[in-house]
Design a binder for these strands. Structure first.
Lengths: 352, 352
DNA sequence: CAATTGTGAGATAACGATAATGATTATTCT
DNA sequence: AGAATAATCATTATCGTTATCTCACAATTG
């Protein structure tokens, strides 16, 4: 182990005590505003602490208090706006409550997720907010066993029996699908990611429901097109749109001509637009397109893309509040499951 | 202080020692792969530790080792792809080295930055990677005083005398500007953010140099248009493109007709495209547009946007390596300053 | 005025690991 | 067999806090 070369040693409580001529005990009481110290002594001590640039040693503090005032966030990646906005909001809420945030990325890999959980457990966290990679996984039981409060977001693990906050994927996709059906679509294709996530399965189910409610039949081979899963988790290397382009181009070239597309990711709409444009299929005249996520560029597409505003921040806010309640022991015993319904943003791509 | 309700108490080294019938000392040596333990005993101990679900108490560990194996990252926000990819890469590198990442967001606010630094200091971090908000700021001196290794990225603080890694904004903007000038542009406008960042100043300077090298004059009133600073730091609430649209529309409506635009943010190009399209100004026939950042949607714009590939990951990788060197005491004494030149991606928006 | 209460402070013991020392036992080599 | 080497134990110290208990002393009370 190489020696960590900290400039000059940071002053400790002992040093401060020696300088002021009191006990470490008293200093501690004074600085933490606990009773047992006269106002004048307290002021004196605080002034001296300030002068010496005393910063309490967190390691010692955490050891005796059993808490590091840190919550962990395990998500797949932060290039996905869903997760980056989620993490941002968690950080904001945590900060307000005096907590810091440890970021652990799992990159949609069960192995990396296991590693992240392991690192989380070894980091002495007070609580954990996580978006699991897989639905059925024993990876999270050590967290429960260790007694660390856990709140899940985005993807559920029903058998784990913990709180869960998410966008309502089912209601969302039905809003989206209903929107194009209400505007006259009769043959809709869902363009979504080819991954075994509950979110995606929920979307497919909701999509099917919506079609059936409108008296249409649902045939996965006709009404669903799957885009290969993401290969990179950097914004600067995001190939979703290209992948969607290829899938859409292929579908169109096979002679399929739906009158509406609902996509599971706004990026897919980018690729879809290109495939349609190349084949002189006009939006919305020949085909309507409905997005998912309200990414910043959707308003600037030609025509502007109708899409769904996802309640990222609300999910993050509620999940963090709930986690802090657990940490502070003020949570009730119930297992909370909340799904927040997204909002529809209708633009020109679905306007007839 | 509310009591933290950890289910049943986690087993400690002592507990484990009692179970195995050895000393805490030996257990510690065995688990940490230090010499002085036979292979068989080591295996036995590890198995038993596994069985009991023993996780060493980090708080105690950090206290005695003086390290939490955690590095902090202070950036403005993670909705900006630059920062989100940066943070992702830092997390990846840190993880490889056995470190975790504490995320602190400053939201371009000096006050919040000060708070983030304060929280960082009180978190017992081993090192810090940061993109400062302001150029001249005394906020960082406590970090130096505390002897915590610090590496800056993206924005420099020359007087602080610490390592710095960044995109070469000067070289980058000259590449971008030269590209349109080489293709025949004679009257170029730089569309950039109205903020007093060194990055932006460097871009303006480089832009000017490029014009002058080509025998053109630079007049800030004619050749620069400023977009109001960002108001939100959530991807889902990013108004850059709208702001740029307004600025561009205004400029065009005042009768200004440059033959090329160079923008400081790909999002600006979105707004600019719309403003041009509305006025039937064709890209690239009437005006060329050069982007900045290679965001995923740029390839799908109509026409596809020429832009600059920024070396996010390389910056993050080098900065993290350097920070780890400092932490492990293997860094030389030099103050390293590296600026990595971005790459040009020429597409249809600048092709004549 | 003795008994009681309250207050500011000190002494000491946790918290749970790592580390160093010296002693003791088991194993291997010459 | 005797020496050298390795494995292990017991003990004590340390890291820098916070918590609990105790005590001295002053102020208050009947």
């Amino acid at each position: 182990m190489a020696e960590t070369s900290r400039g000059r040693r940071q002053p400790t409580l002992q040093d401060l005590a020696k300088v002021v001529g009191l006990t470490a005990n008293t200093i501690s009481r004074a600085l933490n505003d606990r009773p047992g110290v006269s106002a004048t002594t307290r002021a004196l001590i605080k002034a001296e602490a300030e002068r010496l640039g005393y910063v309490p040693n967190v390691h010692a503090r955490s050891l005796v208090l059993g808490s590091r005032k840190t919550i962990g966030v395990i998500v797949s990646n932060i290039s996905n706006p869903f997760f980056s906005d989620l993490v941002s909001e968690v950080e904001l809420q945590a900060q307000h409550a005096g907590y810091t945030v440890l970021l652990l990325l799992s990159y949609e890999s069960a192995e990396r997720e296991r590693d992240a959980i392991d690192r989380a457990l070894r980091s002495g966290l007070d609580g954990l907010i996580a978006a699991p990679v897989q639905e059925r996984s024993t990876a999270w039981t050590p967290v429960i066993k260790a007694g660390i409060p856990l709140v899940l977001v985005s993807r559920e693990l029903p058998e784990l029996g913990v709180d869960f906050y998410s966008t309502d994927n089912d209601a969302g996709i039905q809003l989206a699908t209903d929107a194009v059906l209400a505007r006259g679509a009769k043959d809709v294709v869902l363009l979504d990611e080819d991954m075994p996530f509950s979110t995606i399965r929920l979307r497919t189910e909701g999509f099917r429901h919506s079609l059936e409610r409108h008296g249409l039949t649902f045939d996965p081979r006709n009404n669903v097109a799957l885009v290969p899963p993401a290969r990179s988790f950097r914004v600067s290397q995001s190939w979703h749109a290209d992948d969607a382009y290829r899938v859409a181009a292929d579908l169109l070239d096979r002679g399929r001509r739906p009158d509406a597309f609902v996509v599971g990711d706004d990026y897919y709409a980018l690729g879809l637009y290109r495939a349609l444009r190349e084949r002189d299929i006009r939006i919305p005249e020949h085909v309507m397109v409905m997005g998912w996520g309200n990414l910043p560029f959707t308003r600037f597409m030609e025509p502007p893309l109708s899409t769904l505003l996802l309640p990222f921040e609300e999910v993050a806010r509620r999940a963090t509040r709930r986690l802090l309640d657990h940490i502070q022991g003020t949570a009730d015993g119930r297992i909370v499951t909340e799904r927040i319904v997204p909002e529809l943003a209708i633009r020109a791509s679905t306007t007839r």
